[in-house]
Design a protein around this nucleic acid. Structure first.
Lengths: 194, 194, 194, 194
DNA sequence: CATGAATGAGGTTTCATTCAT
DNA sequence: GATGAATGAAACCTCATTCAT
């Protein structure tokens, strides 16, 4: 039984890697089976079809990120520290599994993910948005974040800045500045001359 | 002759719409032909193959955005006004053709666009980055933008915030706030309590 | 009018060269047109379709060879001399237009030539056979060729030997012997020890 | 396993028959599959593509003939008997599988067989030529064949005569003569009056 | 007459899915 | 349960032929 779950998980791991590498249509069921170390027919013992495998990998992707963010949210630390950890986590995973924000991920695959899975994922996005809002609210309570702007908008502001920053890092050389500090400075103080 | 260019353009328009709607692999050559009002064989008079059609639509997509941003950059108006126009343009096209930032667009299709076209598009991204930097520099000269942060980072900050904001708008209801004002306030002043 | 015939001939010349080089199915109408220096549509002014062009080139091929053999047959020279000229003609055209004997030519293309043209060509083959027989008969009358073997069989014997000889020459180096003399010696005296 | 080889062989048998009947370009993959009693996709389990199937049938064709000739060469019989067997074999297969000499076969398909397979086949032709030469040499040793003519030339003489004879038989009625005897007589004694 | 842009029937090939072992 | 050989629908692309200019 545990073995069954293990094999299922192996298949998903294999599939996720291949989908990420080659996209949905350039990944063959045969490839997934081979990489997972099972026969082609076995895939159909664990999943209805290719679509279902893909859907599962998408759900996993988004849920894993959600989980990580939730974990950070639940930590017993200050707002500033949470923000720093979010930044670091994103940075470390950049060239690994989770280089795309969930929403970009979904947008990339909107023509491929099943309609009903898209809905479920969008719900997760909203969940994540809520968690970000909670973190922002913590900042407000701690007197670190302005209270005159809805937390929702601030969340957007933070997530967007980080996301774009890492996007650019993907195809530009390492810069000479201490960019982490600069980004945080911008988030806190904005770009206007005081 | 003008007619030849027209037909080529018709095909690209048809293709772009279908690729956007259904993705590359779910768009059949027959569909493109039908929508463009030509025969299947005609597509091959104007393009080498499906890949080339797709590549062209990608190039068009990114070049058109680049062009628009360039246009704004060349306008004889203040930094603040340019920022506002960028925001408005992005907002208006949200549910139309250009809902994705060029970089998200490329990332979505990285397994589909030809290698050499990806390179060309990344160059455009850098061009666009340069233009944003020029706009930021104008803000610095006008004494509106802080000079202690590299323009490159600020560009990232502005573009990311706007991008994420519009991403979220795509699947959330219209809010009650005057969000435009709030976003700008954040960009200028940051989220920290003064 | 003469111009019309000229253009028709140009097309056939172009077609024959391409068919020989690339075969029927790898020769495109466009190629024929281009090489003949006319438009693609023009081909259809002079020929019903691709098949007809091909058929014509085949007919030309076989008729030209037939003509040459007839010409030799009509010459006012001895059997021995005729045999020598046949040999020389075949040798000279070996790497040129007429490297295949008519019958090999037809066999190569039996799936491509129109049924009715095949019949016509086979008639030509029989005509050619008859001419060969006449030449053999002349040899008999001159007292040079044995009378106890039907001329038909001797014709076969001569044509086959020459044909195979030139076939082999096509992919083997030039030999050191005076092969011409040896071949003739064989034809005249056979291979048995006297 | 044996079954796998069997199916592969079935496909080749089906393909060879169809190629022979209709040529390469008029034989559809669907036809081959149907005649072999398998699905279209199955062809691609056993062969890379149509070209490979064709190449294999060509190789088989030439190798089978080579094998038969080798077999005759190895027999413990006299030169005269070998010559007779060669004649009989060729005669019997005339309207069956092997109606064309290997070289004619290759020449017919020179635009279709893969370059590298053509080379391989030409090597077989040379092998076959060597075997014929050995047979001729045996005749010389037995004192039946003249020693003043290179065996290579005599081989050409024998093969060509037989080939042409059977070519002609293909489209002419059965004759009244004992042609076998006449042909052999010619080969041995030539056509000159003694 | 001459042309070549437009066409679409028809071919090869791929690959998700099935099912007998 | 696990497998992978077999399948055939579906997609891309070619090219002979047409016909408006």
């Amino acid at each position: 039984m545990a073995e069954k779950l293990q094999k299922r998980s192996d298949i998903l791991t294999s599939a996720r890697a291949l989908f990420k590498e080659n996209g949905f249509h350039n990944t063959k069921m045969e490839d997934i089976a081979q990489r997972a170390g099972v026969g082609k027919g076995t895939l159909y013992e664990y999943f209805k079809n290719k679509q279902e495998i893909f859907d599962e990998t998408c759900i996993e992707y988004v849920e894993l990120i959600l989980e990580k963010v939730e974990e950070i949210s639940r930590m017993n630390i200050s707002f500033n520290e949470k923000l720093l950890i979010l930044f670091k986590k994103r940075k470390n995973s950049m060239y690994e599994d989770f280089e795309k924000s969930p929403i970009d991920y979904i947008m990339s695959y909107k023509n491929i993910i099943s309609e009903k899975v898209v809905k479920r994922l969008f719900d997760h996005i909203l969940d994540m948005n809520k968690i970000m809002i909670e973190i922002i609210n913590q900042g407000k309570e701690e007197g670190v974040v302005r209270k005159d702007i809805p937390s929702e908008i601030i969340a957007c502001f933070v997530v967007g800045t980080l996301g774009e920053y890492f996007n650019l890092k993907m195809y530009k050389q390492e810069s000479e500045f201490n960019e982490e500090e600069l980004i945080f400075n911008l988030l806190f103080k904005g770009f206007s001359v005081k």
